[in-house]
């Protein structure tokens, strides 16, 4: 029994990385977008579109890495479209986000019909657990390179927001559009670029879904990761490195059900699978009180005004 519980713990940690990686990319994308003062709910659509694009390109070219890059580019186009629409007068970013979510998923299903059957080349993984004799540990330490890329991106993003002129401009635009205009900063352009970059990251997150785990392309591929990213970013207090920890937490929570099942605990399987959603709901309830403003929230966000 002792070894069984260790097995669960190891499986949860491995699952945290495996399931948390797409959360990481989407939440980093959302974090950058929100830092510039807009919310992009369309990232759910971006994620699905990225998954489809990555799978298709990988299939046709034989290179999964090219698929990842193209998925990012597709996400970038959707992000740019969102922020371009939002830069018109009296256009609300939440409403456009919902429209973009429907548009992105719809377009991906339409274009992705032929790719449901064939099998594309998979993204390779790195065996960090080869030293170990224990099969569970070996499985848990099979880590995809994209996760490592994600860690680098998180740290780089935090550094960039603090130490570069570009990062400072993004923050000023997110904190006060009026102040930014008084400083002569092009508010809309900075937001468009930030949202496009955020879309790029979310697209990569999508390609991870289709090219590594669960590794297929179907219409039910995403399970709301793009929308949950909004809650993750709130929980991470708009800190990129915080997004890393929060993504692992959510990934681990999602891995709990399957891990328990693997040691024979099947009761409440569906309840365990619902834990990430329950956590998301809890975060929203705890943080969204009308009588308080959130710590660290960019002031231009529609939720904080």
């Amino acid at each position: 029994m002792e070894a069984g519980w260790w097995g669960v713990l190891i499986a949860v940690l491995g699952g945290a990385i495996r399931i948390g990686t797409p959360f990481l990319f989407v939440s980093l994308g959302e974090c950058l977008t929100e830092k510039s003062g807009r919310i992009n709910l369309g990232l759910e659509g971006t994620l699905v579109m990225g998954a489809m694009t990555g799978y298709a390109v990988s299939l046709h070219s034989g290179s999964p890495w090219l698929g990842v890059v193209c998925a990012g580019l597709a996400g970038m186009v959707l992000g740019a479209l969102h922020s371009w629409l939002c830069s018109f007068q009296r256009v609300n970013d939440i409403a456009v986000g919902i429209a973009m979510m429907l548009f992105g998923t719809g377009l991906a299903f339409f274009l992705g019909k032929p790719y449901i059957q064939p099998s594309a080349p998979r993204l390779p993984s790195i065996d960090l657990g080869a030293w170990s004799e224990i099969p569970q540990l070996q499985a848990a330490l099979q880590i995809n390179a994209l996760f490592l890329v994600g860690i680098v991106v998180a740290i780089a993003l935090a550094w960039m927001l603090k130490n570069t002129a570009w990062g400072l401009k993004v923050r000023v635009v997110g904190e006060s559009a009026d102040a930014a205009r008084a400083l002569g900063l092009p508010v809309d352009r900075i937001r468009i670029l930030s949202t496009a970059q955020g879309g790029f990251l979310a697209g990569i997150g999508g390609s991870y879904l289709s090219l590594y785990y669960p590794f297929n392309w179907s219409e039910g591929l995403s399970s709301g990761q793009g929308l949950m990213a909004v809650a993750l970013v709130i929980f991470a207090r708009w800190q990129p490195v915080g997004c890393l920890w929060v993504s692992l937490l959510w990934g681990g929570a999602a891995a709990l059900g399957p891990s328990l099942q693997s040691v024979g605990i099947t009761g409440g399987y569906y309840i365990f699978n619902a834990i990430p959603y329950i956590m998301t709901l809890a975060v929203m309830i705890i943080t969204c009180s009308p009588r308080r403003t959130l710590v660290g929230v960019p002031h231009e966000l529609t939720v904080s005004r």
Binding site: L168, K169, A182
Partner: peptide
């Protein structure tokens, strides 16, 4: 200006640099 154009969530240093 009458309304301050400083960014409240940033430090004095960051405001002067920007």
């Amino acid at each position: 200006y009458q309304q301050f154009t400083l960014i409240p969530n940033m430090t004095v240093l960051e405001n002067l640099v920007i």
